[in-house]
């Protein structure tokens, strides 16, 4: 991964449990509604990227944001009708994540 930054510069590391923020504000946002408020875990840190919430409105994308691959049990997102082993994985920027127990 060419863009990976050192794991010490990220707030989270692989395996950490995280909860997606439930913010709602106007503008260009890359955190889908269905995953807001859900709890999962960090699968992998991808590194630093220009912030699309700034780029989407003609900004410079700075400061860069750390992007994570976050995994969720399908049963935690959609309920018990889902296959127990299945996962949904979403690319989420650090400022959308809070630590979870």
């Amino acid at each position: 991964m060419g863009r990976a930054v050192s794991s010490s510069s990220g707030k989270f590391k692989a395996g950490d449990r995280v909860r997606v923020r439930t913010d709602d504000r106007p503008g260009h946002i890359r955190t889908p509604w269905y995953i807001r408020g859900k709890t999962g875990w960090i699968e992998r840190m991808y590194g630093e990227f220009l912030n699309p919430e700034s780029l989407g409105h003609g900004g410079d994308g700075l400061p860069k944001r750390i992007l994570y691959l976050v995994a969720f049990n399908q049963t935690d997102v959609w309920g018990a009708t889902q296959a127990p082993r299945d996962k949904v994985l979403v690319d989420i920027y650090e400022h959308w994540l809070d630590p979870a127990a």
């Binding site: 890359r30 082993r85 996962k87 979403v90 690319d91 989420i92």
Partner: peptide
């Protein structure tokens, strides 16, 4: 089954 939602630069 692992569904990847490509919401960012990946």
């Amino acid at each position: 089954v692992r569904v990847h939602d490509s919401t960012a630069d990946i």
